[in-house]
Simulated scan of single mutants.
Amino acid sequence: MGMISEFKEFIARGNVVDLAVGVVIGAAFGKIVTALVDGIVMPIVGATTGGVSVSDWKYVVNPAQLDAAGKEVAAEVAVKYGMFLQTAIDFVLIALVIFLFLKAYNRMRKPAEAAPAGPSEEVLLLRDIRDALKK
């Protein structure tokens, strides 16, 4: 029973629960940003590049080969860098928003800096003694 009670104590800690909540919220937030990129950002980028979807961008190494009837004999060999570019933009936007959120959170969470404390009583007493000796 020792291991079960240790596991219950581990799960009951606030950090584990906070981490689980953070992972779930992070996954949902990732979906929101992906929808933003797929639905708004990339169509604007595609419109500026002639209407081609960014995810369709590719470099064709060997084009598809067709037979006389028009059926594909050999598939096209292409480097599809558009999907990578779209995923990289997703990542950068998610990282930027998380950075801005954490920066605002840390600013709100940071306690107000207290005014510097005056010198201690010992220091004041030593100053008085020093001043008295100077006279």
Rank of each mutant, 00 (worst) to 15 (best):
F101P: 07
R13L: 13
V54D: 10
M83R: 15
M1N: 09
W57P: 01
K31H: 06
F29A: 05
G51S: 06
L93K: 02
D67C: 12
F29N: 00
L102A: 12
F101I: 10
V54W: 08
K8P: 11
W57E: 03
I32Y: 00
V33S: 00
G39T: 00
Y59P: 02
V45K: 00
I11W: 05
K103D: 15
L100R: 01
V24I: 12
V77N: 08
G70Q: 01
K31Y: 05
E122I: 15
A75C: 05
K31F: 03
D67V: 10
R107Y: 15
I40L: 13
K80A: 12
A74T: 13
F29S: 02
I89H: 00
K8E: 11
D38A: 07
E121V: 06
K134S: 07
A112I: 15
I44W: 08
N62V: 13
G26P: 00
A47S: 08
I44R: 01
L100M: 09
P111C: 15
K71Y: 13
M42G: 04
T49P: 07
K103V: 14
L133R: 11
D67W: 06
L124R: 05
V123E: 10
I98M: 06
G51L: 07
R13M: 12
F7H: 12
A78F: 03
A69L: 09
F99H: 15
L85A: 05
A12M: 09
G118K: 08
K8G: 14
